[in-house]
């Protein structure tokens, strides 16, 4: 008498194969996470610089939705006029993130077409390094342009769910 059992050897063989492939995919997923392809990490951290080199943005290429993130704007003292520098942040990025804090605090902040302008007061000869804390509220590629007096740098952050 045979055992009455819903054994299915063909399916089982496929399951073993699928499981092995799944383990490899999980290993690749973890590796991608470690290297920064899925969020903050060595690959993700990058700096975009304008042609003149006066405006630079340090940011994560890959961000997470609804997670705290940080972006740093480095402005050369060449961009400072009369002790002030004004940065325009425009594009889909400013529309799709909640900026929760800017350090140092801007002396003025106002809306401009397609984004927001931040004005910083600067001591003579000093470079500016402004840190923006934010939370992404959108998904997908978010494009931005940081411009100071026509000198601009474009960058794209990809936000994962």
């Amino acid at each position: 008498m045979d055992l009455e059992i819903g054994q299915h050897r063909e399916f089982q063989k496929k399951e073993w194969l699928a499981t092995r492939i799944g383990w490899v995919l999980i290993a690749l997923f973890l590796l991608a996470g470690l290297l920064g392809f899925l969020g903050p990490g060595p690959f993700s951290q990058t700096t975009a610089t304008s042609d003149s080199g006066y405006v630079a943005v340090e940011f994560q290429r890959i961000g997470h939705n609804n997670a705290d993130d940080n972006l740093t704007l480095d402005l050369s003292n060449e961009t400072v006029t009369d002790g002030k520098v004004t940065v325009h942040l425009t594009g889909t990025w400013p529309e799709s993130v909640d900026i929760t804090g800017v350090s140092p605090q801007p002396s003025a902040e106002y809306a401009v077409p397609g984004g927001t302008a931040y004005e910083f007061e600067v001591l003579d000869g000093a470079d500016v390094s402004a840190s923006f804390a934010f939370r992404a509220t959108g998904y997908g590629p978010l494009d931005a342009t940081a411009s100071v007096d026509g000198d601009s740098v474009d960058f794209t952050q990809f936000v994962l769910p």
Binding site: L3, G6, Q7, H8, Q12, E15
Partner: peptide
């Protein structure tokens, strides 16, 4: 049944 096999596997001797 195929869906059941995919989500819950099959018994094995």
């Amino acid at each position: 049944p195929t869906f059941g096999r995919v989500t819950e596997s099959v018994p094995l001797v």
